[in-house]
Amino acid sequence: MADLQPPPQAARIAQQDEADLVARAVAGEREAFGILVERYAGVARRVARAVLGNPEDADDAAQDAMLSALVKLEQYDPRRPFGPWLLRIVANAATDRRRRRAVRRVEPLDVGLTAGGPRPDTTAERRALSERLRQALAELPERRRIAVVLFDVEGYSHAEIAPILGIPEGTVRSEVFHARRRLRVLLADWKEEG
């Protein structure tokens, strides 16, 4: 199993590098924190968007998470990889925001998510596929959604995702499996229809 293999040399170097960056950021070096933010902006925003759907809300949640991480940097254990530590904060921030949002208002369902509608050209087809995927993703349970995004989009292993979601590795495997099955059916239907 790939999950059980020791991390490759590059990963160890990256981990050391990030531990240094964190130490420098804790010491008040703004540039070091800036490098960490740049490095993790993409994945943090994608994970937040997987939870929240709305890009503006997702960016707000990702930003809150980054700032929360800055405040908590001293609690980070440099012997562990930085990414999962940060992404746990991101996932929690996005989940909290979604809960607050759910209390605040009831979101209408996205329009334009009609499956099997007319598809006049490739751009429209791609857009429609994206919308269907987004809808399918939104229909997945939240934990399953984050698991499949971290695994298939971000390339994290099951073992790395487990602490992010706070669940056992076996449960991560199961979540990824069920999410993939649902999303692959959607993609397959689309290809067959096309």
């Binding site: 925003r45 994608r46 968007r49 997702a58 960016d59 791609r126 993703l137 989009v153 999303l183």
Partner: peptide, 8 residues
Amino acid sequence: ALRGVLDP
């Protein structure tokens, strides 16, 4: 496909 959907 998911990256395209979630691209920020």
